[in-house]
């Protein structure tokens, strides 16, 4: 049982919800929670959401992207009020996680709202004072769809050893020097790590994006066992 304590706008269609969860046992970046909503007549439904924040006491943050015509995300973005109770279960998942004791360099590849669990890793790295080099490749449709834009700009300046490359699939900022379109092998090879460094690779986004990027990483020579994937967003995308 959790309580919504704050809702922060991220984009026109996404917000970060901050919950107080008494006796939260802590979590690893990359893990998710299950949210269960119950109507007055007993009807209930559940969805999974990645945690955006590093472990920090009884507080967790979820960044929720509105699913067009969705059953749960519109309620979480508009219906649920600050102070309202909600059923949250977790943390869940012991595979798609980064531990600050892992010695390997890290490449994170995010498609759209798939950046959320990867952002938890970026934030946890800083919180732990880790010096593990991180590279984030973040693909969005348009600049307006980018989550955490200001924070990422600040982190690239302040978090030593964090590099970020952006890709735009539909529309880029006016002064954008690169191409607009789907992520290509050249982009992943240029802005990721070479396979010789045996990096830990985390890929999260819609299914088509994850399939394409995982194939690129394997083609580039990365060990498939070092490529961890998580599908994100509404089913069927």
């Amino acid at each position: 049982m959790a309580t919504l304590t704050e809702r922060r706008r991220e984009t026109d269609s996404a917000a970060t919800l901050v919950f107080d969860v008494p006796d939260w046992p802590g979590h690893l970046p990359g893990q998710h929670v299950d949210i269960k909503l119950t109507a007055e007549d007993g009807y209930s439904t559940e969805r999974s959401y990645s945690i955006a924040s590093p472990a920090e006491g009884d507080r967790i943050e979820l960044t929720i992207q509105r699913v067009h015509d969705g059953e749960v995300s519109p309620y979480l973005l508009e219906g649920l009020g600050v102070g309202d109770p909600i059923e949250i279960r977790g943390p869940i998942g012991g595979w798609f996680v980064w531990r600050d004791t892992d010695p390997d360099p890290v490449v994170l590849v995010a498609g759209g709202s798939g950046v959320v669990p990867l952002m938890a890793m970026v934030r946890a790295r800083k919180a732990a004072g880790s010096r593990i080099p991180f590279r984030l490749i973040y693909s969005v449709r348009t600049p307006e769809d980018m989550l955490y834009a200001n924070e990422l700009r600040a982190r690239v300046r302040d978090d030593m050893g964090l590099d970020i490359a952006y890709a735009y699939t539909r529309e880029a900022p006016p002064d954008w020097p690169g191409e607009v379109g789907r992520l290509k092998l050249a982009t992943v090879a240029t802005h990721g790590w070479p396979p010789d460094l045996m990096p830990a690779c985390f890929v999260c986004g819609p299914t088509g994006f994850v399939e394409a990027v995982a194939d690129i990483l394997v083609a580039q020579g990365h060990d498939p066992r070092k490529v961890k994937t998580e599908r994100f967003g509404p089913t069927g995308t």
Binding site: L37, T38, A39, S44, T45, G81, D84, I86, E87
Partner: peptide, 13 residues
Amino acid sequence: MGIVSPGFFGRRG
């Protein structure tokens, strides 16, 4: 039954 989510109706199939 779990905690009722205020104002949640949901979509029944």
